[in-house]
Nucleic acid binder design. Structure first.
Length: 806
DNA sequence: AGACTGGAATTAGTC
DNA sequence: CGGACTAATTCCAGT
């Protein structure tokens, strides 16, 4: 492979020297990681204190876009990647309203951020501001003493832009062709996301105090209309269209381009294959992406970025500075412009911040704080950590809050980041996927031609509809989200790809929000606020490129399942919007998997007596004549405790149906229901994700689980994706929330479920118990208890089919 | 000519 | 360190 790719010293600006530095720093980082992860964001807090106005804000406004300009040593905020969650929403001034403080809010006050809940004042500001936030209690030291491990010189602070930033093609190429896979893709800044249709000013309004400044800055950018694709149709929300604020980046280059320069040192088209990451990651179930080895410090193609930041990455620094934000390419302050201290702080902060996906939060226990208390989303969390308000919103907390009646109402000027869980329904509003996409869609690489739009199972394309609103056209946003058991968030390895062509009837625009491509379509009243998603393809980014991205903790290997995520912000007047979101069923995007991995879409029953013997029917795909169904049970430690192969009735099985006899459980004297799992195996390494099953004590036999009857079987009620089925995103296989199901009180299960379940798909509708329906893709949430524990601990999901221990 | 596809050869990562 | 495998990417070719 091209030499340039090897050491991450591509032609890019980044030099070897920088690499060295990074390496050293990297070590440091790792050390910290192990022991005191959150190193303090160092003086973040103090800085804040000392600096009333977040420096970053000021800088941001007045300085030129960082990206593309100063590759090296330009600290970049950690990319807002999956896993990097934004701070929880906080109550807005208006009752019942929440404001997202996507890394944009800075808590100022005594003791810096550590000020404690309610302590310091909170400022809202553009992503950049995030840098000044420093939850860390021991701020100063970090700044002064540490020569910037994260400091200016170190690129580490600002991980390369993600999203496209990660695109290797970008690297070094002016306007890499790959960035605009779809012709006419408009390069919108992530900020546009925040803008409200009716409030341009709001666009920058994140920071109340500096709002005016921001606006001014915005005006300077000369926001032209976005560059619509050739086929672009009128954008929704026009004339208020916030998007219109962001014109194409100068030079015709989109934000992505700039990112490319910095982030994509990767192979250029000429060098098709990027060097593999210097440090290989272990993809085994045990591996944790987050535990990047020092070796990784040496970046491959993305070398200029420098070592990855410590694990708890980046929170989306607010709108993530790391990603191209509105300011980013519109002349926003560059990272460089940010005071060193600030930058460092941010990076450190990022490091310190717990990630929702990280084990910590779900370490098997619910953090006493938010989750348990059901603290309001966004509510300040334990300050002890000093980063509470920056902490990722607890899925559970959010879930509870939502269930409890908190509304997904946001200020138009502070819309929720893409990684925020949002309900699919709010009052009369509901965003629903009327027609689900197929379970498989082979994504295309940048090196390939498009593989077309995602199709629907019944034929045609997915259809999304907004119920409860039909006043005026609205923008429907769509992005590719994750499909693992963790919070729904933008998928690091896949991006939505705008499909155009004569066969595409739906006009769409491409935008980039925090490094994530977002396809925007219009929901028209005349169409009943429904959209036929025939313009969305899926682009696969090379694992090596993304994994090298600073702050990225997810691994791409075997991480090939995605979900289409749809979101819409419904104006409520008075500068408020209700943001609802829904996600599709999981979609397997690899060629291989789609062809070989068995998939279980539904099954019935979901429980039976420990004596076994009952007939269990599975429906799904890729079942083979020699497919095996194996039941397993794992202990609290994740170790396999029991394994038994079921007897498959081959006569009543076919490629999409498996009929088998439930094996007898190992211990027929159990007094409580036993949670076990099963998977379909087409051979070693060709296993379906695990499915949940329960063995009931004999005495319980007559007392099936509350919703046992609700666990319908697709075939029984019609096609898997019949219109009358529950299309809400896949939910955990659990019949109900842990707390609602006595069966889950079993000691060894409660822990896992207590934190594992809620986070699964908090963003969509009410929990299963609230919306009984067929589980179409239980496997998605079908992680076993041990899996949940293991995955959470490891920080990343175990790929389907890998879980069952050999 | 270009967008889609379906397959499959190569190359890289794991065990 | 090499071999067997598996997964990821890149290539090809037909529609």
């Amino acid at each position: 492979m091209p030499a340039d790719r090897d050491l991450g010293a591509p032609a890019g600006p980044m030099g070897a020297a920088s690499c060295e530095d990074e390496e050293l720093e990297f070590k440091l980082v790792f050390g910290e990681e192990k022991e005191a992860p959150p190193l303090g964001a160092g003086g973040a807090g103090e800085e804040l204190d000392s600096e009333d106005t977040p420096p970053c804000c000021r800088l941001a406004l007045g300085e030129p876009p960082p990206y593309g300009a100063a590759p090296i040593g330009i600290p970049r905020p950690p990319p807002p990647r999956p896993g990097m969650h934004s701070p929880p929403p906080r109550p807005a001034p208006s009752p019942g309203t929440w404001e997202s403080q996507p890394a944009r809010s800075v808590r100022l006050g005594p003791g810096g951020s550590s000020g404690g809940a309610g302590g310091g004042r909170v400022l809202e500001c553009p992503s950049i501001r995030i840098t000044s936030i420093s939850p860390t209690p021991d701020p100063p030291a970090a700044l002064e003493d540490n020569p910037d491990p994260w400091g200016e010189g170190s690129p580490r602070d600002y991980p390369p832009p993600e999203g496209f930033g990660g695109y290797r093609e970008a690297g070094g190429q002016g306007g890499g062709p790959f960035f605009s896979p779809s012709p006419g893709s408009s390069s919108l800044s992530s900020w546009s996301f925040f803008s409200d249709a009716s409030d341009e000013a709001a666009l920058y309004a994140a920071c109340d105090e500096v709002e005016s400044e921001l606006n001014e800055a915005a005006s300077r950018f000369g926001l032209g209309s976005p560059l619509p694709s050739p086929r672009a149709s009128p954008r929704p929300w026009t004339p208020d269209d916030p998007w219109s604020l962001y014109g194409p980046s100068p030079g015709g280059r989109g934000p992505e381009d700039s990112w490319l320069l910095l982030s994509a040192p990767g192979p250029t088209p000429a060098s098709p294959r990027p060097a593999s990451p210097c440090g290989k990651r272990r993809y085994s179930s045990s591996g944790t992406p987050s535990s990047a080895s020092p070796a990784l410090s040496r970046r491959g193609s993305l070398g200029e970025e420098g070592p990855e930041p410590p694990p708890p990455p980046p929170l989306p620094l607010v709108r993530d500075p790391g990603s191209p934000g509105p300011f980013d390419y519109v002349g926003a302050p560059s990272a460089e412009s940010i005071p060193q201290k600030t930058r460092r702080t941010s990076s450190e902060q990022a490091v310190a911040l717990p990630r929702s996906e990280e084990p910590a939060p779900c370490n098997g226990k619910l953090p006493s704080g938010a989750e348990e208390a059901g603290a309001p989303p966004g509510g300040p969390r334990k300050e002890a950590a000093g980063m509470d308000y920056l902490a990722v919103p607890s899925p559970l907390a959010w879930s509870k809050a939502r269930i409890g009646g908190h509304s997904p109402i946001f200020r138009t000027s502070a819309l929720p980041p893409l990684d925020w869980p949002l309900p699919s329904q709010y009052e009369q509003l509901e965003l629903r996927i009327e027609v689900q996409p197929r379970a498989h869609h082979r994504a295309h690489y940048e090196t390939e031609g498009s593989r077309g739009a995602v199709k629907a199972a019944p034929g045609g394309h997915p259809v999304v509809k907004l119920l409860g609103y039909s006043e005026k056209p609205l923008t429907l946003q769509m992005f590719i989200g994750t499909a693992d058991e963790r919070n729904l968030r933008p998928h690091a390895f896949y991006q939505v790809h705008r499909i155009t062509g004569k066969m595409v009837a739906t006009a769409s625009y491409e935008a980039v929000v925090s490094g994530t491509k977002v396809l925007e379509m219009t929901l028209l009243p005349e169409n009943n606020m429904a959209a036929n998603i025939d313009c969305a393809g899926i682009l696969k980014l090379r694992n090596s490129d993304i994994e090298l991205r600073k702050g990225e903790t997810d691994i791409g290997r075997k991480n090939t399942r995605v979900r289409l995520v749809f979101r819409v912000h419904v104006p409520q007047g008075s500068g408020k919007v209700v943001s609802v979101q829904t996600a599709s069923v999981p979609i397997e995007c690899s060629q291989r998997s789609a062809q070989e991995l068995p998939q279980v879409e539904a099954y019935s029953p979901s429980a039976c007596s420990v004596r076994g013997g009952e007939e269990l029917v599975l429906t799904g795909s890729n079942f083979l004549p020699d497919s095996k169904v194996v039941f397993i049970e794992r202990g609290p430690d994740g170790k396999l405790q029991w394994e038994e192969e079921a007897t498959v009735n081959r006569l009543q099985s076919n490629e999409v149906t498996l009929t088998l006899a439930v094996p007898e459980y190992s211990n027929k004297r159990v007094s409580r229901p036993v949670q076990v799992y099963f998977y379909v195996s087409n051979g070693r390494r060709k296993r379906s994700p695990t499915q949940s099953f329960k063995f009931l004590p004999v005495i319980f036999k007559e007392e099936p689980l509350p919703d046992a009857s609700l666990r319908g079987f697709p075939s029984a009620s019609g096609p898997p994706f019949g219109s009358d089925m529950d299309f809400s995103p896949p939910r955990p296989p659990y019949p109900s929330y842990p707390h609602e199901d006595p069966a889950y009180e079993t000691p060894y299960l409660s822990e896992g479920f207590s934190y594992g379940t809620p986070p699964l798909y908090p963003q969509t509708g009410p929990p299963p118990s609230y919306r009984p329906g067929l589980r179409m893709f239980p496997e998605t949430g079908g992680a076993t208890v041990s899996e949940i524990i293991g995955r959470d601990l490891s920080g990343f999901p175990a790929p389907p089919g890998e879980e069952p221990p050999a």
